[in-house]
């Protein structure tokens, strides 16, 4: 069963004190409550006395893994939702960050984030890589029972329907790049949208350009996307975009039994070529 937010919050505060006692960390990265907004926000705790600031609520949407790269190689502790733990495992598998520099407090039986459709079809409800855990683990049977009958959006759509769907959705894009910036695996130092020589994406926000931006981002995602839904949660226009990367996520799983960020030891999708691999093309 999924754990309650309150229970997770209580355990986090206890464990945080332990983490401070046992490790000489730069900071403990978790969620706290905004002083004025009351909304959940990332916090960077420096002292054990601050442990009681930690919370976990249904609006703890940001992926904290995103911040770790900014402060590496310092030793950092981080509260990790299962999806966040997968992003971390993926970072390690790609050599982006060293396991030795991380203290991971994983959230077992994650109750999910309100409004995040990725949580409804989440196949990772316990963290894949931890040093400490909070909450009860969720059993495989329970997980499978919850996923029973869950369909992902593109499954039943014809190409024409997809085109219509995405044209409508992307027409609202303002190119604020919140999706990219919130995405834990969009970590390129120099994103293609910021290159003008060559200019991969022309300036301006016509429907075509918005479509190109999202398609290009999607094409960087197979074998990377951990299906956390942060892109959509960050989008202020409510654009349904995750289904594209989710589709690729499922294709990689079907074709190569590959799920990114399942283990820090796994090789990445594109560096693991086998001549027996099927090659039907990703987009169908």
């Amino acid at each position: 069963m999924a754990n309650s937010y309150n229970e997770i919050t209580r355990e986090l505060q206890e464990i945080a004190a332990e983490v401070f006692a046992e490790h000489d960390i730069k900071h403990l990265l978790g969620f706290g409550r905004g002083e004025f907004s009351g909304l959940t926000e990332p916090v960077f705790l420096k002292k054990p006395e601050e442990a009681e600031r930690l919370i976990f609520q249904d609006d703890a949407a940001p992926m904290l893994s995103k911040y770790l790269l900014k402060y590496k190689p310092d030793l950092q502790a981080v509260v990790a939702k299962p999806c966040d733990s997968r992003a971390l495992a993926y970072y390690i598998s790609e050599g982006k960050i060293s396991r030795d520099n991380l203290v991971i407090i994983g959230i077992n039986g994650c109750p999910g984030i309100a409004g995040n459709t990725a949580c409804d079809e989440c196949d990772t409800r316990n963290p894949v890589i931890v040093d400490y855990t909070v909450g009860e683990e969720m059993s495989q049977e329970e997980l499978e029972a919850e996923l029973e009958g869950v369909k992902y959006l593109l499954e039943d759509m014809s190409p024409a329907e997809r085109k219509e769907h995405y044209s409508r959705e992307f027409s609202r894009c303002t190119q604020c790049y919140a999706c990219r910036d919130a995405c834990p695996v969009c970590y390129c130092d120099h994103c293609y949208v910021e290159s003008n020589q060559p200019e991969w994406l022309e300036e301006g926000s016509s429907a075509d350009k918005d479509m190109i931006f999202h398609l290009m981002r999607t094409m960087h995602m197979p074998g990377r996307c951990v299906n956390c839904g942060a892109c959509e949660m960050a989008c202020p226009e409510g654009i349904e975009m995750r289904s594209m990367t989710t589709h690729l996520y499922h294709r990689a799983k079907e074709l190569y039994n590959y799920r990114p960020g399942i283990s820090p030891e796994q090789s990445t999708l594109f560096s693991d070529f086998d001549k027996e691999d099927s090659e039907p093309g990703f987009l169908q």
């Binding site: 926000e41 990332p42 960077f44 995103k66 911040y67 303002t174 604020c176 790049y177 919130a182 202020p236």
Partner: peptide
């Protein structure tokens, strides 16, 4: 840096 550490660098605040 400390006051704004969690900023992701998107343009939402300015666009709205």
């Amino acid at each position: 840096e400390e006051a704004t550490a969690s900023c992701l660098g998107c343009g939402v605040c300015t666009f709205y």
